[in-house]
Amino acid sequence: MAISQHDDVPVAGLTTGQLARLLGVSPTTLRSWDRRYGFGPAARADGRHRRWSPDDVAMAQEMCRLTATGTPPAEAARTARLRARGSEHGHGPDRSSLEPSAGTDGTPGRAGSGLPLGRVRPECRGLARAAVRLDAEEVRELLRQAVTHHGPAVAWEEVMSPALQAVGRKWQSSGDQYVEVEHLLSWHISAALRHYYPDAARTRRTATGLPVLLSCLPGEQHTLPLDVLTAVLGDEGLTVLMLGGSVPADALITAVRRVASLAVVLWAQTGDTADLGLAGRVAEARWGVRGARTRTPVLLCGPGWHPVTDDAGPPGLTHVTSLRDAVRRLTGLRQAPPSR
């Protein structure tokens, strides 16, 4: 919603932290704009602390709107200042330009980013704005805060995933636009989760027992869901051995035979990579000393498995339907005896 001089801004003005919360950005971003583009409040309270007046707030909101539509930050800062000067000279700001971008259904976008977010956490709105601006520094900081404050499961389900889905929907409805936004956001989400896992394993609980082996099938490059699962399992005190994307079949079988693992998780994003025959070979692979060979349970994760698991598949395979289902099954295996 646009802010005027008579709205919720106190006469004394807002602090940088208050304005950051109002706009859904971090204080670091506002200070960066001030440092790089001279974009900041002139007034100071008691000669020390800077305060954003109602006009300053409207200018900052215009800056957010412009960068959210793809305008380079330097150009957005110049335009926002020019419009603010027009208001000072009695011309008045363009009120329609201060409104959030419209969503795909024609209603105002709640994130002010032009993305169809719907009802989401405020952190998700801020993340969407920063991603559309291609503000990598802000995206990184917001993701760090979300994972630290909410944990990886809630951060993924209520902040990261809704933002990614909104970008994907916007991409589908606008041709090639927003592809770079999706790539930026995906990469930083993966980086945040991968950074979180070792910290969780060290500080939250002591990881003990056999590791969970995670792998994408040959030709499958979508590793982000396994990064999510890795971080959540770290919170649960499980050790994870992540093989990554597009693991060759022979290498996957060799790893299962070499590693005494609690379970193997195979991810397939599409039916083209969901190889039920290979999954059966993994389920049949045994490890351990002669006379006491052990098989490892195999969990099939991802939407790609839906068309290939409608019929009965090889024994030893379990189709998992959600992140929480996978975590529940894997944590339950800690108490179960190994298969012979």
Results as ranks from 00 to 15, higher is better:
Thr107Tyr: 10
Ala76Val: 11
Leu14Glu: 03
Met63Cys: 08
Trp52Ile: 10
Pro54Lys: 03
Leu19Gln: 04
Leu22Gly: 08
Arg81Val: 14
Ala42Asn: 12
Gly13Val: 08
Val120Leu: 09
Ala84Leu: 11
Met63Ala: 02
Gly92Arg: 05
Ala68Lys: 04
Ala76Asp: 00
Ala60Phe: 03
Arg50Lys: 07
Thr69Asp: 13
Gly114Ser: 07
Ala12Met: 12
Pro93Phe: 11
Trp52Ser: 02
Val57Trp: 00
Thr16Ala: 00
Thr79Asn: 01
Ala130Cys: 08
Tyr37Glu: 06
Leu134Gly: 00
Thr104Phe: 11
Gly24Asn: 01
Thr71Gly: 03
Ala42Phe: 11
Ser87Met: 10
Asp135Leu: 06
Gly38Ala: 05
Glu75Asp: 15
Gly114Met: 03
Leu82Val: 15
Arg36Glu: 00
Arg121Thr: 09
Gly114Gln: 06
Asp46Ile: 12
Gln18Cys: 05
Ala12Pro: 00
Pro54His: 01
Asp34His: 10
Gly70Ala: 02
Arg35Trp: 10
Gly109Ser: 15
Asp8Ala: 14
Asp94Lys: 06
Arg51Phe: 06
His6Lys: 07
Arg48Asp: 11
Asp135His: 01
Ala43Phe: 13
Leu134His: 13
Ser32Trp: 14
Ala76Thr: 08
Arg21Asp: 13
Ala45Gly: 13
Arg81Gly: 08
Gly38Gln: 00
Thr67His: 02
Ala80His: 05
Val11Leu: 14
Pro122Asn: 03
Gly40Glu: 02
